[in-house]
Design a protein around this nucleic acid. Structure first.
Lengths: 134, 134
DNA sequence: GAATTAATTGCAACAATGTTGCAATTAATA
DNA sequence: TATTAATTGCAACATTGTTGCAATTAATTC
């Protein structure tokens, strides 16, 4: 079983593995500043380049929500290089502020008349499972 | 009939009126850089403050789409101060790169299990009516 | 309509975020 | 293990967004 980085045909470096580790161990999507805070030794420039490479290779995808930093979540298998497929919902919790990628089986279709739709992304705001329980 | 700015209880200044004019004359949502380019005399600092005021007062709402600048669109009547209601779709045209707010009558509901949803926003990418026609 | 009050503007200075060229280093390949 | 190709990190810069404060302008009161 090849490692994710080798699968994606990019060099396996300690820095990239550490970033990946942070992404994998977080249940929610994470911001660049979160990654910075959790890196042992961090270099801003290398981090920006790492994020860019990961996005380009389909390892992570950016989630933009107005008023929040951009967050990055690991892509599911359906994402290929540079073509991110997003048949899931992004939920931002109004309480803990975390952003989650949630798979849904039933993805709605909408009609925009004469406009042609090529992809859809749903952004929800609300209270996440965790925060509701506590 | 009170002007929009007076309705929203903020001072009517030439600068604000000019920004409003740009927003109203554009069919799509616009970015800060677009506004800058179209202002006769522009001051970055004042523009940032104007945008912030307009968002806070429910005159415009920000639209964040990953990989694009944030765009601002005029709010419909359903937006109140600081509480933007978004039962419309944001469409980014892959060709002309414009971002449109489109009202839809049929707004879908989705089920996120144990997560509680408080608001939904749909972001579509595709080809807008104009670009399809030409 | 002039005087007062309150809000807005713009400068200077700064803070945060993101980018590029290039030499040194490290990983992959032969 | 030697070679090649990719990655890293420094220095320097570019862009984007923010804050305090004095001057100006708009709204309000008389």
């Amino acid at each position: 079983m090849k490692s994710l980085l080798k699968q994606k045909k990019i060099s396996e470096t300690p820095f990239r593995l550490e970033v990946l580790e942070i992404l994998e161990s977080s249940k929610s999507a994470v911001s660049i500043s979160f990654i910075e805070e959790n890196l042992k030794s961090y270099n801003r420039i290398t981090l920006y380049r790492t994020i860019k490479t990961f996005v380009d290779k389909g390892i992570i995808h950016p989630i933009a929500i107005a008023g929040s930093e951009v967050n990055y979540g690991l892509c599911s298998d359906s994402c290929e290089d540079e073509v991110h497929s997003h048949n899931h919902v992004h939920l931002k919790c109004n309480e803990c502020k975390s952003v989650f990628c949630i798979e849904t089986t039933l993805f709605p279709t909408i009609d925009l008349g004469k406009h042609k739709i090529e992809s859809l992304e749903i952004q929800a705001k609300g209270i996440c499972e965790n925060c509701r329980a506590s």
